[in-house]
Simulated scan of single mutants.
Amino acid sequence: MTYLRTIGEVIGFLLVCAVVIVKDIVKFFIPKRYKMKSINGEIALVTGGGGGLGRLLSLRLANLGAIVVVWDINEAGIEETVKLVRAAGGSCYGYVCDLCDREDIYKKARIIKEEIGKVTILINNAGIVTGMKFLDTPDKLIIRTMDVNVMSHFWTAKAFLPTMLENKKGHIVSVASLAGQVGIQKLVDYCTSKFAAMGFDEALRMELENEECNIHTTVVCPYFIRSTGMFDDVRASYIPTLSPNVVADRIVTAMRCNEKYAIIPGYLQILLALKWLFPWPCVAMFLRGLVQDASPSHPSFVTAATINTKEMCTVPLSKDQNGAVIHQQLTRRVSSSERKP
């Protein structure tokens, strides 16, 4: 009987898989504009919203009718984002929040609930990179990377998820990286944190799906993004670095379509699958050829004594963050598919 039961379970599993695959194939051919959910009136929190990708996301979310809340350690950057969003006709609020400080995260979360309302969209976008060889990286910088890139995901989710569960509605977006799928030299701490962010998203999704609570999660894995101050001078071949506008559009679309994963650019999904098919020497040779140096301009060594505590959690802005080119990108007209419903 046990043997027959096992066979029955396997057959049942395969039948369910077949149905799911057919449904996904049908969904694939449905235009995305018909699959996108409205976020009009939702309260969306964006970490690292004081510049770069976070600012672009804030503008797009506000344009779709969401009430945007921006968290960052950079007060001037927050003020600029709030000003840009409001100038575009959106609703935006900014709070200085130290993502390395769990208690500060919980405190600011309580303030938002009291002053603005219940957050239903959480976008963990803040990220930092040291770009140094592992043994040259001071301990404090490694701790900072883990605090901002992954540990803050735990604390923000614990701060806002209970309310989402009460209302049986919510969406958590984790901005990871393709460096969370493959290892890159000079990015040991960064890759580790992004691998962890992916694991966090997948495990949390499993729990939430088991609860059947209508709370969705999306993990985003982009290639190197230019004009964000993190990988502007990366030496890479074959695949061009990404425009932050393209990445922002893709993140918003993935969230509105309740996608589980968003690999940017999408064709890299094939290369990621090949990683497990080819022998390691082939994979390593390809990765070394693809990314010669992730941080060529970074000094080879920085002593821990030179690190200012207050600067530990500051997400660096690009040199031309406030320049005309970036300002035009930030204030450009959003595509028709991304207008308010």
Rank of each mutant, 00 (worst) to 15 (best):
A159F: 01
S174V: 00
P240Y: 00
A248P: 15
N214Y: 08
P281K: 00
L178P: 05
L272M: 12
P281F: 02
I172E: 09
F286K: 06
N245A: 10
G183T: 09
Y238L: 15
M164H: 15
A159E: 04
I184V: 12
Y267V: 14
V182T: 08
S237L: 08
Y261R: 15
K260T: 13
R205F: 02
E166G: 13
M206Q: 14
L165T: 01
A196M: 10
L204K: 02
A254D: 00
L272W: 10
G183Q: 04
D233T: 07
L277A: 10
L165V: 07
P281V: 05
C191E: 07
C257G: 01
A196Y: 10
V173T: 10
S177W: 05
V283C: 09
F286L: 10
W276D: 12
G199A: 04
A236P: 07
I172Y: 10
V247D: 05
A262S: 15
W276K: 15
Q181S: 09
R256L: 14
V188G: 14
L165K: 14
F286T: 07
T163K: 14
P279R: 05
K186M: 02
K194Y: 10
R250F: 06
C221H: 15
Y267D: 11
V182F: 09
V182L: 06
I264H: 05
C257Q: 03
C257D: 03
L208Q: 15
R205N: 06
K158N: 13
K169M: 02
N214V: 11
Y190L: 01
A197H: 01
R250Y: 02
D201N: 10
L208I: 08
P222E: 04
P265T: 13
A203N: 09
I270M: 08
M164F: 06
V188K: 08
M230Q: 07
M164R: 13
C257Y: 13
C282P: 01
I251N: 05
S177R: 03
A248S: 15
D189G: 04
K194C: 01
L271H: 12
A236L: 15
S237C: 09
K186W: 05
M230D: 06
L274P: 03
M285R: 06
